[in-house]
Design a binder for these strands. Structure first.
Length: 429
RNA sequence: GUGAGUGUAGCUCAGUCGGUUAGAGCACCAGAUUGUGGUUCUGGGGGUCGGGGGUUCGAAUCCCCUCACUCACCCCA
């Protein structure tokens, strides 16, 4: 860093995943992928960038996400946005690829970055990774239960037990509208007594008023209408079926009539997975059914259900629970090739590539360090082997193979070197 | 967008009532009779004390502004 040169940082709320961090991310990805594929969910990698209109249409014009949280820009006449969530793009891809006509039942999962222009704080970033699962093309309540079960198993596989499934139904169409009207009518007389926030929620999303944590507001909500009393027989049956399917798996559900997902596309089943001991940050997963999104985005009217799990909240949860065991940092390669003496640069380079071609991972010193210093580097870097090549070895066609943790060194014929290394690596040290 | 807290070396931090060359640990680099790593010892590089302005004989320290980060609210994974 020179003095008169300005420096650069990652943009606010965006952090780099350094090589040291990748193993942990990979572990979560592996667990997610394994649970998903076992249930026939296939990985999909949709666009990171979409037409802005897609999100306006699906997520909703009057949501916080669309109103103020999207990274949007214009190129030519096209308005684009970095995706703030995964479902819209996945459904768009599903329709665009023609699945609805040919093979409407599709189970997809995706792990990748999402972007929201928010003020960063603990557990919340502008670029964050989500594990998304979407079961498309069916209304079957067992799919609701299946994805909820999948989400719960994800956390349990990581060691987070006591996952609480909070569930609600938002109804669909008429019953939902009637419920909303009823809530509005119920609240209207007491709005003056509510907090400022509730008053703004009343305008933006009435149902959210019932979610207020303010005790004085809560008192005003006693006797508020419950959605379950408004559900059509069909939606009520669906909701009951989802819960009973989960019960059959031994998974309890908690009816949370205040649970209202913020995005416009949700219908019927909505749910959140919580780990109550985590307090304010107990919410680990959110999802639900979005039965008309495919239609709203230009496809046939097909049901769908899915969820999103944020990796950052998950990691935070593991940390707070003290069960985050970071995978050991793996060395860059198995072997560190040491040059014993001057003028061996080319020889070292050639030997390294020779070993690599036989399947051995090797790096060599590029700082012109002393032999001793190279050995230190090999040790500090966690390499299993140091390979020493000097004039003498070169002439005799051998290499010193040093097993660093074992502190043993043997002279090996160059032709046998790769095999000997691979052999030694095959048995646990 | 609103509010609060914090900015000293790559990292974690100390720095008194304002006082002269701003420190420690870790990390890094180099040595300890010249072809061999964990410990130890010695030495070394590295900071315009976030930036700008002000008060003062004198500012890392006090005041103002600004930026950044963190946390909280809204909302959310």
């Amino acid at each position: 860093m020179s003095k008169n040169q300005r420096t650069y940082r990652a943009p606010r709320g965006i952090r780099d995943l350094l090589p040291e961090d990748v193993a942990l991310a990979e572990r979560m990805e592996r667990i997610a992928a394994s649970l998903a594929t076992r249930r026939g969910f296939r990985e999909i990698r949709p666009a990171l960038l979409e037409e802005t209109a897609l999100f306006k249409r699906s997520v909703g014009e009057v949501t916080d996400i669309v109103e103020k949280e999207m990274f949007s820009f214009e190129r030519g006449k096209t308005h684009l946005s970095l995706r703030p969530e995964g479902t819209a793009g996945i459904v768009r891809a599903y329709i665009e690829a023609g699945y609805p006509r040919n093979r409407p039942i599709q189970r997809f999962f995706h792990i990748g970055p999402m972007f929201r222009y928010e003020r960063p704080q603990k557990g919340r970033e502008r670029m964050f990774t989500q594990f998304d699962v979407e079961a498309l093309g069916s209304m079957d309540p067992r799919l609701d239960a299946e994805v909820i079960q999948l989400a719960a198993l994800f956390f349990e596989s990581l060691g987070i037990d006591e996952i609480e499934v909070r569930i609600n139904s938002m109804g669909d169409g008429d019953d939902r509208d009637r419920y909303r009207d009823a809530v509005r009518a119920f609240l209207a007389p007491s709005m003056e007594a509510h907090c400022d926030l509730c008053r703004s929620r009343f305008e933006r999303n009435v149902l959210r008023v019932l979610d207020c944590k303010n005790p004085s507001c809560r008192e005003l909500h006693a006797g508020a209408p419950a959605i379950v009393d408004f559900l059509s027989p069909e939606n009520e049956a669906h909701f009951a079926a989802v819960r009973s399917s989960l019960e059959r798996l031994g998974r309890k559900t908690v009816l949370d009539s205040g649970l209202v997902r913020g995005l416009d596309y949700y219908t019927r089943t909505v749910f959140e997975l919580h780990h109550p001991p985590l307090g304010v940050r107990s919410a680990l997963c959110g999802g639900g059914r979005y039965d008309h999104l495919v239609r709203d985005l230009g496809g046939p009217d097909l049901g769908a259900v899915g969820f999103a799990i944020g990796f950052t909240p998950t990691l935070l949860a593991l940390e707070e629970l003290g069960i985050l065991d970071r995978p050991a940092i793996r060395p860059a390669a198995d072997c560190f090739l040491v040059a014993a003496g001057e003028g061996l640069d080319e020889e070292v380079f050639v030997l390294a590539e020779e070993l690599r071609s036989r399947g051995v991972s090797v790096v060599f010193d590029v700082e012109g360090k002393s032999l001793k210093s190279q050995m230190k580097t090999a040790n500090a870097g966690g390499f299993r082997f140091a390979l020493v090549l000097g004039e003498s070895e070169l002439e005799r066609g051998v290499v010193q193979l040093k097993d660093l943790p074992a502190r043993e060194q043997h002279e090996i014929a160059r032709e046998e070197l790769a095999d000997r290394i691979l052999e030694a690596l095959a048995v646990p040290s």
